[in-house]
């Protein structure tokens, strides 16, 4: 059975997933930019793929991943540098999630409506 951790375990799992997601994006981004070396034709052809609506949703996902990873990183730093705050780690996590969703609502709207 999967270990039933609480907020701390979930925040860590999301941190790993978003970290891998952002890394994957960076790898793809390096590859597509590298294609310039083979001339504008192939580069434009590959970049055109990104106009597909799926990539629009993917971009929102990328923003969400970067935002979560950054906010959770700050939470980890606070806990690491001020261990006294470990007592409130759950509250800090919920505050982080609140900030995350408050930011994601307008950002998703703006990104998807363009």
């Amino acid at each position: 059975m999967f270990y039933k951790g609480k907020e701390g375990q979930w925040s860590w799992i999301f941190h790993r997933i978003t970290g891998i997601g952002v890394l994957l994006f960076l790898a793809i981004h390096i590859i597509d930019t590298m294609l310039v070396g083979w001339g504008p034709e192939i580069y434009n052809k590959v970049i055109a793929i990104y106009r597909n609506p799926i990539f629009k949703i993917g971009e929102v996902g990328l923003f969400a991943a970067v935002l979560y990873h950054a906010l959770n990183g700050i939470r980890i730093m606070i806990i690491d540098f001020v261990p006294e705050f470990t007592k409130y780690h759950r509250q800090i996590f919920y505050l982080e999630m609140l900030l995350f969703f408050l930011s994601m609502i307008p950002v998703s709207f703006l990104m998807l409506s363009h």
Binding site: Y3, G5, K6, E7, G8, Q9, S11, W12, I76, I79, D80, T86, H89
Partner: peptide, 9 residues
């Protein structure tokens, strides 16, 4: 340690 808090729970 990755501050996962499973130990505390």
């Amino acid at each position: 340690c990755r501050t996962i808090f499973n130990c505390v729970e």
